[in-house]
Simulated assay, not measured.
Amino acid sequence: MCRWLAYTGNPIQLETVLFRAEHSLIDQSLHSRMGHTTTNGDGFGVGWYGTPTDIPFRYRCVQPAWSDRNLREAARAVRAPLFVAHIRAATDTPAQETNCHPFRYGRWLFMHNGLIRNYPSVRRDLMMAIDPDLFASVEGSTDSEVMFYLALTFGLELAPVTALERMVAVVEEAGRRHGVEHPLNMTVCATDGEQIVAVRYSSERQSRSLFHSTSFRHLRELYPEDDRIKMAGDDAYLVLSEPLVDLPGVWQEIPESVAVVTKGPSVEKFAFTPALP
Score class of each variant (00 low, 15 high):
residue 2 C to P: 00
residue 3 R to E: 00
residue 3 R to D: 00
residue 3 R to S: 01
residue 7 Y to T: 01
residue 12 I to K: 00
residue 14 L to F: 00
residue 14 L to G: 00
residue 15 E to V: 03
residue 15 E to H: 11
residue 15 E to L: 02
residue 16 T to G: 04
residue 19 F to D: 09
residue 23 H to P: 05
residue 25 L to N: 03
residue 28 Q to M: 05
residue 31 H to P: 06
residue 31 H to D: 11
residue 31 H to R: 14
residue 35 G to Y: 01
residue 37 T to V: 12
residue 38 T to A: 15
residue 38 T to Y: 08
residue 42 D to F: 04
residue 45 G to V: 08
residue 45 G to L: 07
residue 46 V to A: 14
residue 47 G to Y: 04
residue 47 G to C: 05
residue 49 Y to T: 01
residue 49 Y to C: 03
residue 50 G to K: 08
residue 52 P to D: 04
residue 54 D to S: 15
residue 56 P to A: 06
residue 62 V to Q: 15
residue 62 V to E: 13
residue 63 Q to R: 11
residue 64 P to W: 12
residue 68 D to E: 12
residue 69 R to E: 06
residue 73 E to C: 11
residue 74 A to Y: 10
residue 75 A to S: 12
residue 76 R to M: 13
residue 81 P to K: 09
residue 83 F to S: 01
residue 88 R to F: 02
residue 91 T to E: 06
residue 94 P to T: 15
residue 100 C to N: 15
residue 100 C to V: 02
residue 100 C to P: 05
residue 101 H to W: 03
residue 102 P to V: 11
residue 104 R to V: 04
residue 106 G to L: 00
residue 110 F to R: 00
residue 113 N to E: 03
residue 113 N to S: 00
residue 116 I to R: 01
residue 119 Y to C: 01
residue 120 P to D: 14
residue 121 S to F: 13
residue 121 S to Y: 13
residue 124 R to L: 12
residue 125 D to N: 15
residue 125 D to T: 13
residue 126 L to A: 01
residue 126 L to H: 00
residue 126 L to E: 00
residue 127 M to D: 03
residue 129 A to W: 04
residue 133 D to V: 11
residue 133 D to G: 12
residue 138 V to A: 04
residue 140 G to F: 07
residue 141 S to P: 05
residue 142 T to A: 10
residue 143 D to N: 12
residue 143 D to L: 09
residue 145 E to V: 06
residue 145 E to N: 07
residue 149 Y to D: 03
residue 150 L to S: 12
residue 151 A to I: 10
residue 152 L to H: 10
residue 154 F to E: 08
residue 157 E to Y: 11
residue 159 A to I: 07
residue 160 P to T: 13
residue 161 V to N: 09
residue 161 V to E: 06
residue 162 T to R: 12
residue 162 T to L: 11
residue 168 V to P: 02
residue 170 V to W: 10
residue 170 V to Q: 10
residue 171 V to M: 08
residue 172 E to C: 10
residue 178 H to K: 15
residue 179 G to R: 09
residue 180 V to D: 07
residue 185 N to A: 14
residue 187 T to F: 06
residue 191 T to E: 00
residue 193 G to M: 08
residue 193 G to T: 06
residue 196 I to D: 03
residue 197 V to L: 07
residue 198 A to C: 13
residue 200 R to M: 05
residue 200 R to G: 09
residue 203 S to L: 08
residue 205 R to S: 12
residue 205 R to Y: 01
residue 206 Q to P: 06
residue 209 S to T: 14
residue 209 S to M: 05
residue 210 L to R: 04
residue 213 S to G: 09
residue 217 R to I: 09
residue 220 R to W: 10
residue 221 E to K: 15
residue 222 L to N: 11
residue 222 L to Y: 12
residue 223 Y to F: 13
residue 228 R to T: 14
residue 238 L to Y: 14
residue 240 L to G: 02
residue 244 L to S: 03
residue 245 V to G: 08
residue 249 G to V: 02
residue 250 V to H: 00
residue 251 W to I: 04
residue 254 I to E: 01
residue 255 P to I: 03
residue 256 E to Y: 03
residue 260 V to Y: 05
residue 260 V to L: 13
residue 261 V to H: 07
residue 266 S to P: 03
residue 268 E to L: 10
residue 273 T to Y: 06
residue 274 P to W: 03
